[in-house]
């Protein structure tokens, strides 16, 4: 059980909106470093037993690619390192590329954790609250997709037994797939009409419907919401007082350590590292409880 699984979907959504907004807000290297550290460590904590080295490698390559290609498109900056095809390659452009890569990396990693925690049932709960008929449509599609996949396997098996698509010719196999798909379409439409009639028979569309859900708003959801809003508000306020305005061209802005900057950076680090701290505390507590048995 992961700690973030137990939060209310609305609190979770707000948390992710704040985090993603801040990750894309500024090119400030301190903020981006915090976001990258927070997202990658949180992903490792969230996906712990099922970490894959291949996807990590892919993201490293992506980061390097963005870093290296930026100087090819941007020749701004005052510190020229060397010339490539008579075009200057500058230190600023490389640093800017690294910052862009870091931003991309952090957003992608936050989205990966979002996918772990914001499962379709939670999304459905949120969607269904705002818009009942869209929520209904979404839930039906979610149900139908695995049903159709299974039914397709059955149909395709039968078609093969009947002697279709058995040969090694690709065209023959494609034709068999299309044939099975056609059968699936007919079956699914008749099935859907039956479902619709059954829904009508049970009084769909008459007055208010309620939806069942297991989620309830607890104290920790309030705490998370207040923390997110306070931290984001604080960071934005600091931004209004001059923090997080970072420029790479023509020369990189030197870092100033005055009050708004220090407050802003500490808030950013606190917010970005909060998920992994929460997960870590939960894991420690779990291990402690288990060892106490």
């Amino acid at each position: 059980m992961k700690r973030f699984d137990t939060f209310h979907p609305a609190a979770l959504l707000l948390f992710y909106i704040c985090i993603l907004l801040l990750s894309m807000l500024s090119m400030d290297p301190v903020l981006l470093l915090a976001s990258v550290c927070g997202s990658i460590s949180f992903y490792c904590a969230a996906a712990y037993p099922r970490l894959s080295a291949r996807s990590g490698l892919f993201f490293c390559v992506l980061f390097l690619l963005v870093t290296v290609t930026n100087p090819l498109f941007s020749h701004n900056g005052v510190t020229v390192l060397f010339y490539l095809n008579h075009q200057p390659v500058t230190k600023e452009a490389i640093c800017c590329g690294a910052a862009l890569g870091a931003m991309l990396l952090s957003v992608l990693y936050w989205c990966r954790t979002l996918q772990i925690f914001m499962t379709s049932d939670k999304l459905l709960y949120l969607f269904g609250r705002i818009s009942p008929s869209l929520g209904l449509l979404l839930s039906m599609c979610l149900r139908f997709t695995p049903v159709f996949r299974r039914q397709y396997q059955n149909i395709h098996q039968v078609q093969k037994t009947l002697g279709y698509g058995g040969s090694d010719q690709p065209l023959d196999r494609i034709r068999c797939h299309v044939r099975s798909f056609g059968i699936l379409v007919t079956w699914s439409m008749e099935h859907a009409i039956e479902t619709a009639d059954s829904m009508n028979g049970r009084g769909y569309g008459l007055g208010q419907r309620t939806a069942f859900s297991l989620f309830c708003w607890r104290l920790r959801d309030t705490l998370l919401t207040v923390f997110c809003l306070a931290a984001t508000g604080g960071i934005l306020a600091c931004r209004a007082y001059g923090a997080l305005h970072y420029y790479y061209y023509p020369a990189m802005t030197p870092h100033i350590w005055d009050a708004p900057h220090v407050i802003c950076y500490s808030l950013v680090w606190l917010l970005m590292l909060s998920p992994v701290i929460l997960e870590g505390v939960e894991t420690l507590r779990w291990n402690y409880c288990r060892s106490a048995i």
């Binding site: 008929s133 209904l136 449509l137 039906m140 599609c141 139908f144 699914s188 439409m189 099935h191 859907a192 009409i193 479902t195 619709a196 009639d197 829904m199 009508n200 769909y204 569309g205």
Partner: peptide, 9 residues
């Protein structure tokens, strides 16, 4: 409802 179901399918 039938139209809705058709879109879902």
């Amino acid at each position: 409802t039938r139209r809705l179901m058709l879109i879902a399918v």
